[in-house]
């Protein structure tokens, strides 16, 4: 049986073949590297590394770009925050279950952190309750985290409410961490905005939105909330589809605005095949945003 982590690794391997090997690690390192002033050593430049880390003198002597590495004063803690409510057992825009995309995204991020030597923790739950797993290193630990998310997300779970998990983090987590939040298309609301600004003041936050299925597109749907079915030909009628499209655009704009105001970088992913690409773009954007 392939473990969830193996799937993540193979996904990353495919990506690594397309992009230069190590780009992701470079991106991650430049975002999450705990900087200190203690110089460690030099290593060859990997695309994605921070340009300001290039040791220009050494590069001039050596003939190829070299990067200064510093001794990390502390291990970073990456806190994966996932929604495991029943909304995540629904279908994503790509037609896959959103849970699979969530697990893939958490896996990629967790594995990057693990390779970087950081410890990874998990805060997950639904509207009924939130659980957390303390941060630890090791692939086994990461696999356990992914399994926890994978198994607790089902159609029988309570409703989704990512605020609960974020509040849990705000209440219980001390110190500065890197938060990686995976949620679906949440709607903006002022309460949430305040909470995000409060968290952002303490932590570094990356936000990945898993795109919801287009309900106005072809297909027969039922609600994960109450199992009621949608009358598909009504949903696909031009007037309803147009109104739904307008509402979706407004909602996306509201969420982006809320996250931007809180200083959070957001990426979005439609299916598991573009998780790695989306994460790469997210890290890139976050690094640019500084």
């Amino acid at each position: 049986m392939t473990t969830l982590l193996q799937r993540v690794k193979s996904k990353m391997a495919i990506f690594a073949h397309r992009k230069a090997r190590g780009v992701l690690d470079g991106e991650y390192g430049s975002v999450f590297r705990g900087r200190s002033l203690d110089f460690d050593d030099l290593r060859a430049y990997i695309p994605g590394d921070e340009v300001r880390d290039i040791d220009w003198k050494a590069t001039a002597r050596h003939g190829s770009p070299l990067i200064k590495r510093y001794v990390a004063v502390r291990r970073q803690t990456v806190l994966l925050i996932a929604d495991t409510g029943r909304n995540m057992a629904a279908v994503a825009r790509s037609g896959e279950t959103k849970k699979d995309i969530v697990v893939m995204a958490l896996g990629v991020m967790g594995y990057l952190a693990h390779r970087h030597g950081d410890v990874v923790g998990l805060v997950s739950g639904d509207s009924a309750g939130t659980g957390s797993v303390p941060a630890k290193g090791g692939e086994g630990h990461l696999e356990r985290l992914l399994r926890r998310v994978h198994s607790s997300t089902s159609g029988d779970a309570a409703g989704s409410r990512i605020q609960e998990q974020l509040e849990h983090v705000a209440r219980t987590v001390k110190g500065r961490h890197l938060l990686f939040v995976v949620a679906d298309e949440i709607a903006a609301d002022p309460e949430m905005g305040r909470l995000l600004r409060r968290l952002r003041a303490q932590h570094e936050i990356l936000w990945l939105t898993v795109r919801d299925a287009e309900l106005a597109a072809a297909g027969d749907w039922y609600s994960v909330d109450d199992s009621s079915s949608l009358v598909s030909h009504l949903a696909q009628s031009p007037a309803v589809a147009a109104a739904y499209g307008r509402a979706a655009v407004e909602r996306d704009a509201g969420r982006e605005n809320m996250l931007r105001q809180a200083g959070i970088t957001e990426g979005s992913v439609a299916g598991s095949h573009d998780v790695v690409t989306a994460l790469f773009a997210l890290l890139e954007r976050h690094r640019r945003a500084g």
């Binding site: 029943r86 909304n87 629904a90 299925a213 027969d220 749907w221 909330d225 949608l230 309803v240 739904y244």
Partner: peptide, 19 residues
């Protein structure tokens, strides 16, 4: 619902006045 697919946030569609 066996041949239907689960969808989240259906209220975002069903609460539309047009729907």
């Amino acid at each position: 619902n066996a041949r239907r697919r689960p969808a989240a946030h259906t209220d975002r569609l069903t609460m539309l006045p047009e729907y």
